[in-house]
Amino acid sequence: MNFQVTVLKILVSYPNGFASMPDLKRDMAILATSGPDWAARTKRMGARVPELDLFTQQLVDRLHGGWRITHKGRAVLELMEPRPTTHQLQPEDTRAPELPSPVPAGSLPVELRRSEPERLGRRRSSRVTDG
């Protein structure tokens, strides 16, 4: 497992990128024991930035009993994240969306069965006679 990549991945998952030391240690322990997939993933990611150093490159700040990922740390993590290749991308669905079946007129309320001009005409006539 690549320790530095794991720290970045943990920090980016927290609100504002900040994790207290107890939270960071707990999450590290969980990931360290999660199996070979995580270790392989962080090694692959770390290989993309072999000179990774959290503090000298200012990827992480130490403050208030914890660590916080910086904007630069987020950018480096983004560079390390694997990108899907063109054959992994799903083709965009270009079909027209299916329209819902029309509702039979007999199942609509009486107000909705009348045509728009008929409904408007009745409203106007009632206003004229009221005034």
Rank of each mutant, 00 (worst) to 15 (best):
V7I: 15
V49E: 03
V110C: 02
A39G: 10
Y14F: 15
T129M: 06
V49M: 09
K43H: 08
V49R: 03
S126N: 13
I30Q: 13
R83T: 07
V5F: 00
D130E: 10
G106N: 11
S126R: 15
G73R: 03
L79R: 15
I69V: 14
G131H: 07
V128I: 14
K9E: 13
P82T: 12
Q90C: 08
P82H: 09
R48I: 06
W38S: 14
F18C: 06
V60M: 07
P36Q: 10
T129D: 09
W67A: 15
S13N: 04
P104R: 08
A32H: 10
M80F: 05
S107D: 09
T6C: 14
T94Q: 11
R83W: 01
G121D: 06
P82C: 04
E78Y: 08
P50H: 12
A75W: 06
E116M: 08
Q4Y: 03
V110D: 07
T85G: 12
D61C: 02
P100M: 10
M45I: 06
M1F: 05
T6G: 14
I30S: 11
S126M: 12
N2S: 11
V7D: 10
E92C: 11
T129A: 09
W38R: 11
V7R: 12
Y14V: 07
W67V: 03
A75S: 04
T33R: 15
R123G: 01
E118D: 15
T33I: 06
D93H: 05
E92N: 01
A40P: 00
T70W: 04
T86L: 14
P100D: 14
D130Y: 02
F3C: 02
H71C: 00
Q57V: 11
R68Y: 06
M1C: 08
E98G: 02
P50Y: 05
E51H: 05
K25S: 11
V7H: 11
A105E: 13
G65V: 01
L11T: 04
P36E: 12
R62I: 13
F55L: 13
L24R: 07
